[in-house]
């Protein structure tokens, strides 16, 4: 194996799912938490993405950000900007963002109709 290995190797076809126009909802509990988090500054956005990994193969990735390099679609719900990366849009169409107020296992939760199964902690799905 040498440097030529890399330069002359053919790219492997990677499955690129179609970009889906995402619709999503945010529960009242989650909206209240977002209002606390954002304050009056609505220039910030909630990024809802998916990464590979976790017990079930896909992990949710929630971030409050100002901007991102990722190609995203923006959904505005009651003044909250929600960004969904196009690369994972097919996995997130129809989700509900909820907030569960519990000492253990609490926090933001994603109810995802595209998930066949999810792991015990709810952070990953298949």
């Amino acid at each position: 194996m040498d440097c030529g290995t890399c330069e002359t190797a053919g790219p492997i076809q990677v499955v690129k799912p179609d970009v889906v126009e995402v619709s999503l909802t945010i529960s009242d509990n989650a909206q209240a938490m977002l209002a606390d988090a954002f304050g009056d500054d609505r220039s910030m956005a909630l990024l809802v993405g998916v990464l590979s990994g976790g017990c079930s193969g896909y992990m949710y990735d929630l971030q409050i950000i100002e901007e991102t390099d990722q190609s995203c679609q923006e959904v505005n719900i009651n003044g909250f900007r929600v960004l969904v990366p196009n690369a994972s849009s097919h996995l997130l169409d129809g989700i509900e963002i909820d907030y569960v107020d519990r000492l253990m296992g609490g926090g933001f939760k994603i109810n995802n109709p595209n998930a066949d199964s999810s792991c015990g902690c709810g952070e990953s799905f298949a």
């Binding site: 194996m1 030529g4 290995t5 890399c6 002359t8 190797a9 053919g10 790219p11 492997i12 076809q13 990677v14 499955v15 799912p17 993405g49 998916v50 990464l51 590979s52 990994g53 193969g57 896909y58 990722q70 990366p85 690369a87 994972s88 996995l91």
Partner: peptide, 17 residues
Amino acid sequence: SPRILGQDVSIFDASAN
């Protein structure tokens, strides 16, 4: 393959070399 979403990952086949 279907799990490469937004990540910076590219795969090339170098077996023949």
